[in-house]
């Protein structure tokens, strides 16, 4: 069964989204593998639920973060889309909105936050700084785009982006979530990257204790 090509987003018709080509390419990619009818139906149900309750991590390093707060407040009201449950712990978050400049000192921290999030997880690069380094590209201490450190799903340009573009970017993410094959792909179990090293460490400690 083919994946529905046109996920419905309330109030915005499909044609009005920009960059439908990238999206269609993604769908074609997913379709190439084909899906079981029953699984796909279940997928759709789950994706519907997931796309309407994407919980962002409270992560703001600078100016764009203030605009994020404005989006959370009453006027732009992110709760209309189900994104209002900002989580302070990466373990409970679905999406990380990288709003603000990422410096080289912050880069390992961001990477670790990303690693700590449970799959399926998404990244939205908000603002010029997160997209490409913004006004600070020439700086010795700024990462020129977070896609150097973590994979990015949606880019929202602007310095800072207007609240409307925030929401638009989040809707793009919703579309992406809505066409996903949940079972067997996005919810796959990732191999624990630390398992081997941890086992080694444990052994070392054990040996040391033995000796002592």
């Amino acid at each position: 069964m083919a994946i529905n090509k046109r996920p419905k987003i309330k109030s915005i018709p499909y044609e009005e989204f920009k960059d439908n080509e990238t999206f269609e390419r993604l769908v074609a990619e997913l379709n190439a593998k084909g899906t079981n009818v029953i699984v796909r139906k279940l997928d759709e149900l789950i994706d519907w639920g997931r796309s309407n309750s994407l919980w962002p991590l409270t992560f703001a390093t600078s100016c764009c973060g203030i605009e994020f707060m404005a989006v959370c407040a009453a006027r732009y009201d992110i709760a209309r889309f189900g994104f209002e449950v900002t989580r302070n712990s990466p373990r409970q978050a679905d999406v990380i909105l990288v709003s603000g400049t990422i410096t080289t000192k912050m880069a390992p921290v961001l990477r670790r936050l990303y690693d700590q999030m449970a799959d399926p997880k998404y990244v939205v690069a908000v603002g010029g700084c997160a997209v490409s380094g913004g006004p600070f590209t020439k700086s010795y201490h700024v990462v020129n785009g977070v896609d150097n450190i973590i994979p990015v799903d949606v880019y929202v340009p602007g310095c800072p982006p207007r609240p409307e573009s925030f929401l638009y970017g989040m809707m793009q993410l919703q579309r992406k979530v809505k066409v996903e094959n949940f079972f067997g792909t996005t919810n796959r179990k990732e191999k624990d990257p630390y398992r081997d090293t941890m086992a080694e460490k444990a052994e070392e400690i054990y040996n040391e204790e033995e000796q002592a």
Binding site: T61, S62, G100, T101, T103, K105, M106, V109, P135, F136, K138, S139, Y140, H141, V142
Partner: peptide, 23 residues
């Protein structure tokens, strides 16, 4: 400190005065 040290003072040295304003 320094997690958001963006090197503004240093990059300003390479910019013209109107450009430094933006930072």
């Amino acid at each position: 400190l320094g997690y958001i040290h963006r090197g503004v003072e240093k990059i300003s040295e390479k910019m013209t005065y109107p450009q430094t304003l933006a930072l």
